[in-house]
Design a protein around this nucleic acid. Sequence first.
DNA 1: CTGTTAGCGCGTTCAT
DNA 2: ATGAACGCGCTAACAG
Lengths: 363, 363
Amino acid sequence: MVALPLMSGMPTIVDMPLPEHPRMSDVAARAGVSLSTVSRALRGASGVAPAVRAEVERAAAELGYVVSRGASSLVTGVTGRIAVLVPFLQPWFFGVALAGVSTRLRASGQDMLVYQVGDVDELDAYVRSLPLRSNVDAVIAVALDLGDTAVARLDEIGLPVVFCGRRVPGRACVFTDDTAAAAGATRHLLNLGHRRVAYVCSRDQTGFSWSSRDRLRGYEAAMAEAGAEAVVVTEPPGHQGGALAMARLLSMAEPPTAVFAESDDVAMGVLQVARRSGIDVPGDVSVMGFDDNDVAALLDLTTVAQPVTEMGERAAELAVRAVRAAGPVRDHVHLDTRLVVRQSTAVPRSRREGPAGGTEQRG
Amino acid sequence: MVALPLMSGMPTIVDMPLPEHPRMSDVAARAGVSLSTVSRALRGASGVAPAVRAEVERAAAELGYVVSRGASSLVTGVTGRIAVLVPFLQPWFFGVALAGVSTRLRASGQDMLVYQVGDVDELDAYVRSLPLRSNVDAVIAVALDLGDTAVARLDEIGLPVVFCGRRVPGRACVFTDDTAAAAGATRHLLNLGHRRVAYVCSRDQTGFSWSSRDRLRGYEAAMAEAGAEAVVVTEPPGHQGGALAMARLLSMAEPPTAVFAESDDVAMGVLQVARRSGIDVPGDVSVMGFDDNDVAALLDLTTVAQPVTEMGERAAELAVRAVRAAGPVRDHVHLDTRLVVRQSTAVPRSRREGPAGGTEQRG
DNA sequence: CTGTTAGCGCGTTCAT
DNA sequence: ATGAACGCGCTAACAG
């Protein structure tokens, strides 16, 4: 083997192609000032002569220089990053919520780190060991119940937490009143004249609560209030669960005349089975959803609309505020839902054909 | 005002509540070794006596110590973060793709930074100034055409780029053959006996390509091959565009007997208008989608399925490899699509009622 | 208003 | 196999 004469200190082919990014010292040299001045100027700190500031900015622009966040966060402790925890990434809700968060964070130049924590164990693993240490400035938990231990851990680290989609006493959170909304939706069905109103809720397989319990409570309250008997069917999440639920409801001795599904997704399974069974909606049965996702409009589904994008934006807003305040932010942001009445709900057949009379049609 | 005797150097109430995280020196002290040894041990580097390594790990665990990525990336240049660029966050496709990326990155302990770049200007702004400098190790562009200048800029910085959902010569990418898939879907309709097959494509408002052009090409090729005349209707994206398109198609002198929509989302608008117009699907008109999103199954839509989750996973895989290799990775990962035949496509009515005979039903 | 100094927490040479 | 020094790129205290 031939010994190649590689003198150290001499540039070799190896270190030439490194496209060395300009550093702050390069900018300083070009602008003819010191490092601190560059730092101050670029950071918008006070105490820099306007002319000097302009000169520094020009030099930076010409060099294509961008401050290294990694380096500055090492000393400031601020990373410019915010973590968003979601149980799933696929469902409509989370995409929309993330879009809201993203929009808000872009406005303040923060970056969005997204973690999918499918079950409580993953969540725990995330909170425990992974990348919290000097990795993010705040955490936004979307439609997620962080356990007490997880929250305690975040507190210990001094990391602000914002809950999005769930009301948590004593914590920064943005939420809608699921219970009241579900009660309102149920009352709408009752007011139409329905008595047998069934509720389809999804089994909580992952240990999280998707506001599921709250909606159930609202339904039950409204039913009790009206003296009607609650009929609750529990199936797996998603439209498949909705389909299973509807199949079960249709095999009851006295099938319901109205079905309130926990979410639009579930409602779609209900609609599918209804259609395939030749059951007219809303003629034979009314169907109510929850969410107002983009398919709901398409299917003419009456549903409860939540301002999901705004929830994301507001949650991000709280997170940013918490970072800036460097102290606890405990705001509760309560957003309104609204009932969107479409074609999937109507007066029950019994009412139309009954003694009340009117312009009802038969056959 | 009373002057408070605050001696510097003396701990005040201000710096006491800071929940000081343990640093590497704390671990070193507790294990009775030096910083370098702790660093080596925790990083799994060679040259540490097994006993010492165990001792260090124990000390770290007891202190709840986690290595600061910020600090280590300052010296190694590796951030452990990968940026994912998406044009939108809401559509089904992106949620699923992100889930794939997330899963793969979790496996190697990388974090996922998500940026929504709604139009080319935002993209440019992102690539140009924002957080690239020592902020991420690689970039995954999902269903996005990075312009040449943007790519050149990333090259300049030395940041690996992986394209997900689009074939880019000379670049790492994972993709499906949209042209072939669209051609296959079109041929399926032609083989059923349809001659007037319309294509609904969405206007590219943002300057991005959603594989739209490729699918159109496949459709046109298959039509030409069969000697059939191409009928292309262009409308805004989403199901609203699909609805508009179907309305236009239905007002033609000779409406098509089959409609091939660029995406399932568009197809849903087509289905909606068909249903509202009392047009039977597939009796009067066949409808074909593209994507196989979760609603397609619900609506019995025949469509082209893409392995979106796998696309995300493979893209992340390439990104991780590029980071490790520290050199260019140019793999092309070609994934297969498949036609999912459901109830929205069938032999055209003319064929069923025509001279071919058979067990067709009338009325 | 500006420059100088001293670290932020860690990886990486070198010695030993 | 281990430890001491140095520096990653930047900000924060000081001095001038």
